[in-house]
Amino acid sequence: MADFILLMISAILVNNILLIRFLGNCPFLGVSRSMDTATGMGLAVIFVLTLAGMITWLVHTYILVPLALEYLRTIAFILVIATLVQFVEMVIQKTAPPLYEALGIYLPLITTNCAVFGVAIININEGYDLITAIFFSFASACGFALALVLMAGMRERFALVDIPKPLEGTAIGLITAGLIALAFSGFLGLV
């Protein structure tokens, strides 16, 4: 159990997927302008990433490895993720319309979120077993949601402050992200 707690802390705080590993930065800067969208995106990513981490691991271990097709990993994983996102979208639409409304366009966008694909590959590269892979995927996604919500909280206040003209918009967003990342690197000694 201690191992899992350590893995969680490491994935959420120390090796934060957005700020330290640099995965999923497009939505990070794209949808962090308001708190509502950030929360929606965060939840959608937690849900899909955990599922995708599990399924890609199963596909790799029980289909690609026995058939010696590991070099097709990239194609196989992206297809699995695209199908999964589509499927999840349909299921949520049928069973939980309010959740579907809340997640809105963020669900389809997750297909090209490199955080999902990246974590699937890290799971394989690090040689995790199934349980560890699921834990790691879940923890990484929580780290993603945490950083996204923190960032949105800060960016909402930008509306009220005086920012130098050339830095408005994305530029100041990037610099803010840098400062948040700097704060996160303070966790480096934890694990």
Binding site: L19, I20, F22, P164, P166, L167, T170, A171, I172, G173, L174, I175, A177, G178, L179, A181, L182, S185
Partner: peptide
């Protein structure tokens, strides 16, 4: 370091 990447890109964009 990772934080430097964000700041450098932000300043270049500026």
């Amino acid at each position: 370091k990772p934080p430097g990447a964000f700041v450098a890109l932000g300043l270049l964009l500026g």
